[in-house]
């Protein structure tokens, strides 16, 4: 069974003037179909305003669909009684680290989720312990979140979601407000959770470099999914990506340019190591 599945999902933001007449309609999601299996690491890529954050909020039952259906862990999100169970299954990490930390002490913030769903006290402590350890923040457990760096705050937020033991975590541009080192920390934590705990990760981002390690990538524009496939497939279509004004990782771009100028380098190079190997191979072939 898929953990997240959408069928013909449409979301319209309707603006009304003072007399309640419809002023304008913005279609944030336009018949989106997608399927995420348990344990996968999915990336959703797109520009600002492409609808990717709207999609994320649907997975957490924070918005109501205009049309279409979304199922999380087999539950129809639009049903009132499913809202809480869905939020328990699918956690969410938001963009701004400051605006999602509720308590003034790290461990109390991590406990906020389990407290809400009525977990007994002893188990809350266990879960807090485990979650802080999973994101390597145990030594900051008694600190105030205000004194942490952006990356650390975001890791606390991840721990807060982990403590609810979700099957799936949606990361809504978790690195957009962080410096490069904070970005690395957060991504490493996300991959770690996916690998070690088997949590399904849905990473929403506009940084190309971050999707390279994903299992599957969806590219969104104007509320539609315009491309999908494995990262290697996506990045082998350099020209198509450029046509959608999406940046390609530098290494992929370089490999593409080299191939265009005649070197026999395969398509879909994602890392420096791969490119180095490919060039070495060319060189040895050439010598022979």
């Amino acid at each position: 069974m898929s953990i997240v599945k959408t069928k013909g999902l449409v979301h319209e933001f309707i603006r009304r003037d003072e007399e309640d007449n419809v002023e304008s309609i913005t279609t944030a999601l336009d018949h989106v179909d997608l399927r995420v299996e348990q344990g996968e690491f999915i990336a959703i890529l797109g520009h600002n305003g492409s609808g990717k954050s709207t999609l994320a909020k649907h997975i957490n039952a924070l918005l109501e669909a205009t049309e279409g259906t979304i199922w999380v862990d087999g539950m129809d999100v639009s049903e009132e009684e499913n809202v809480m169970p869905v939020r328990k299954v699918a956690g969410m990490v938001f963009q701004n680290p400051d605006n999602q930390i509720i308590a003034s002490v790290v461990e109390e913030d991590v406990a906020f989720g389990p407290e809400n769903v009525g977990v007994p006290t002893d188990e809350i402590w266990e879960r807090v312990e485990k979650s802080l350890k999973a994101v390597d923040m145990t030594k900051y457990r008694n600190h105030s979140p205000n004194k942490l760096s952006g990356g650390q705050k975001q890791r606390v937020a991840i721990a807060g979601v982990m403590a609810m033991e979700p099957k799936c975590i949606v990361f809504d541009e978790p690195t957009a407000m962080l410096d490069p080192s904070g970005r690395k920390e957060v991504l490493a934590a996300a991959h770690e959770l996916n690998r070690q705990k088997g949590v399904t990760v849905i990473l929403i981002t506009h940084y190309m470099e971050e999707v390279v390690d994903a299992d599957y990538v969806y590219v969104m524009e104007d509320g539609k999914i315009i491309m999908d496939g494995k990262p290697r497939e996506i990045f082998s279509k350099v020209d198509e990506l450029k046509a959608h004004r999406l940046d390609v990782p530098q290494v992929t771009l370089l490999a593409d340019e080299l191939r265009k100028s005649g070197l026999p380098i395969p398509k879909g190079i994602l890392t420096r190591e791969e490119l180095a190997d490919a060039i070495l191979k060319c060189a040895s072939d050439f010598r022979r």
Binding site: R87, G91, N96, M164
Partner: peptide, 11 residues
């Protein structure tokens, strides 16, 4: 933002 984050954590 905070209200949404709290709701997302089942508040």
């Amino acid at each position: 933002d905070l209200a949404m984050a709290m709701e997302a954590r089942c508040y």
